[in-house]
């Protein structure tokens, strides 16, 4: 059985303070987190991240999302059922526990730049139970 309390939920923030710049964030997983199962991006200004944001994400030195991957593809609104919001990434080993994010802000006519925050939520598990192992 998969129980919610077995899932480690971590949040990492990057502050976007300048327009048209790349901001790098380096984070570390909880030491008990061994397999990453899901990821989701949110922001305090959804519209800015939706139109302007793209990012590259690496976990354990492996590229999870390539450069220029739009942030809006990793966002989910309130209209998505809470249980379906995170993007499933399979069961990715955390390995050295390093998470690297390169967030790129690019001009877009629809929204003017103001500083905003990008939050990366990462869901991971300590160990795979049978059901998760089969799904991998």
């Amino acid at each position: 059985m998969i129980y919610k309390h077995n899932i480690i939920k971590e949040r990492f923030d990057i502050k976007i303070t300048d327009a048209n710049q790349v901001f790098k964030g380096e984070f570390e997983h909880d030491k008990n987190a061994h397999y990453v199962t899901g990821i989701i991006l949110t922001s305090d200004k959804d519209d800015l991240m939706f139109y302007r944001g793209s990012q590259k994400i690496q976990i354990n030195d492996k590229e999870l999302f390539p450069e220029d991957f739009e942030s809006r593809l990793l966002m989910a609104g309130l209209n998505v059922a809470p249980d379906n919001r995170a993007i499933s990434v399979g069961n990715l080993e955390t390995g050295n526990g390093r998470i690297e994010v390169w967030f790129k802000d690019t001009d877009h006519g629809a929204v003017k730049f103001t500083p905003y925050r990008v939050s990366i939520y990462i869901f991971s598990v300590v160990e795979l139970c049978d059901k998760q192992g089969q799904g991998a």
Binding site: D46, D47, F50, Y51, R72, L73, M75, A76, G77, L78, N79, V80, A81, N84, R85, I87
Partner: peptide, 29 residues
């Protein structure tokens, strides 16, 4: 249309159906 707009649409009353907006069950792209 942006996700954040859909979210707002989603919280409008049901009678908005008549005006071309939808009670949307969103999903991940």
């Amino acid at each position: 249309l942006p996700i954040y707009n859909l979210t707002i649409t989603n919280h409008k009353p049901l009678d908005d159906f008549d005006h071309g907006t939808f009670w949307t069950q969103g999903k991940i792209e």
